[in-house]
């Protein structure tokens, strides 16, 4: 039952974040690259004030899977690192997000080499 409720929350929070993005697409003429940057930075800034953690605690993957969760991870890592040393304050964020960045680059390159752009019909 708990799991079901959690999935419901994940769905609602994740869906809500994406709906905000769609609103931005409909009302401003922002391109997808800019939207990704805006969401990433909002996640990072909200977490810098300690706020995004609440959304994550409530919505689980609904908050961490969107790119704003990536920003959250970067900020969170940096804040934890800052407790220890100057060096870790600088590297903490990248360390926390390292898995994502590394996999995006490696998988990105591999799949780009393996596959070719398809012809589009609509």
């Amino acid at each position: 039952m708990d799991i079901l409720l959690m999935f419901l929350k994940v769905f609602a929070v994740g869906g809500a974040i994406c709906t905000v993005a769609q609103l931005l697409i409909n009302y401003t003429k922002l391109t997808s690259g800019k939207i990704l940057v805006i969401f990433l930075l909002s996640g990072a800034v909200l977490q810098a004030f300690g706020l995004y953690q609440y959304i994550v605690d409530f919505g689980g993957s609904g908050a961490t899977v969107p790119i704003s969760g990536f920003g959250y991870l970067l900020s969170k890592g940096a804040m934890e690192g800052a407790k220890e040393s100057l060096f870790k304050a600088i590297t903490g964020g990248i360390t926390a997000a390292g898995g994502g960045i590394a996999s995006a680059i490696v998988f990105g390159y591999i799949f780009a080499v393996l596959f070719k752009s398809k012809s589009k019909k609509n």
Partner: peptide
Amino acid sequence: FSSAERQYRYPLE
């Protein structure tokens, strides 16, 4: 379509 899309807009995929 495919060569113009790449030049003026975004990658196809």
